[in-house]
């Protein structure tokens, strides 16, 4: 049982090397991104100053899709190769992805108020994000719904794969639905031509969010690995106590638990 968790040590060693770089890169990129987004970029000719919301809204939406893709990849790895770290990686990724989906929804709604005059419009992109948010919530809820944490991870992995196959279908259907019910005077998000002065802050914040993901992912992974080891230790302690009831030292271990 413990042997299975022997390879996290290599992962933790790697994480120790990456983490400071991720931290520095995130902070620098985010500072630069904020500077360009708020100070050093022109207002849009159509949307005025509100275009600045785009520099955090669109990267959040990208991160939402990026994290769901990662979730599907880790789930596939967990199912095919039964790699114990893959399940933990899914657990470490899901809350970050759900948070970015939530942020994309909130900033989209705040952007919608000056653009459309209401806080919420059943725009195809916002609606798809809304559905994606529920896919994340389902994944997280299923993970924690079982007494056996590993069983929950496996069930959630299957759900993530099913959801990932369905995401393009859902996206297509919501676009279809939206064209049927399109109100005439809706200004589209992100017109065809994004000026290069807008591209700089957009890419900077997008990269900063990626760095933030790596940084926080490593921290979450440390927590998850420690949790998994705790579970393995508890199981082995119980087994030891059952096998050698006579041994006093094991009896003390079981008592301490």
């Amino acid at each position: 049982m413990l042997n299975r968790f022997a390879n996290p040590i290599r992962f933790l060693r790697l994480a120790d090397q990456i983490q400071p770089w991720a931290a520095i890169l995130t902070l620098v990129l985010f500072a630069a991104g904020l500077y360009f987004a708020l100070f050093n970029s022109p207002p849009d000719y159509q949307q005025g100053e509100t275009v600045r919301i785009m520099y955090i809204h669109v990267p959040s939406a990208w991160m939402a899709l990026f994290c769901y893709t990662l979730l599907a990849i880790t789930s596939g790895v967990a199912m095919i190769w039964k790699h114990p770290l893959a399940n933990l990686a899914g657990r470490a990724t899901a809350p970050i992805g759900a948070t970015f989906t939530f942020l994309a929804l909130i900033t989209g709604s705040i952007w919608g108020k000056p653009m459309w005059g209401t806080w919420w419009v059943w725009d195809a992109r916002l609606t798809s994000m809304f559905i994606l948010f529920f896919l994340y919530l389902g994944y997280i809820a299923l993970q924690d719904a079982f007494d056996n944490a590993e069983g929950g991870s496996k069930a959630a992995a299957i759900l993530a794969l099913v959801g990932f196959i369905n995401v393009p279908i859902i996206k297509f259907s919501v676009d279809w639905w939206n064209t049927l019910h399109q109100p005439a005077s809706v200004i589209k998000f992100s017109g065809p031509a994004i000026h290069s002065t807008m591209l700089t802050p957009l890419l900077l914040t997008a990269l900063a969010f990626k760095g933030y993901y790596v940084w926080l992912f490593l921290i979450n992974m440390r927590g998850e690995i420690a949790e998994a080891r705790c579970r393995a230790l508890q199981v082995s302690q119980i087994q030891n106590a059952q096998v050698a009831k006579v041994a006093t030292s094991d009896a003390r271990d079981a008592h301490a638990d």
């Binding site: 559905i131 719904a145 079982f146 259907s173």
Partner: peptide
């Protein structure tokens, strides 16, 4: 075998029913 299976089921299945 999950806790609160029926509520969980609606959360899992309804988003997939949308198309």
């Amino acid at each position: 075998g999950a806790r609160q299976g029926s509520i969980l089921l609606s959360l899992l299945v309804l988003p997939l029913y949308i198309p």
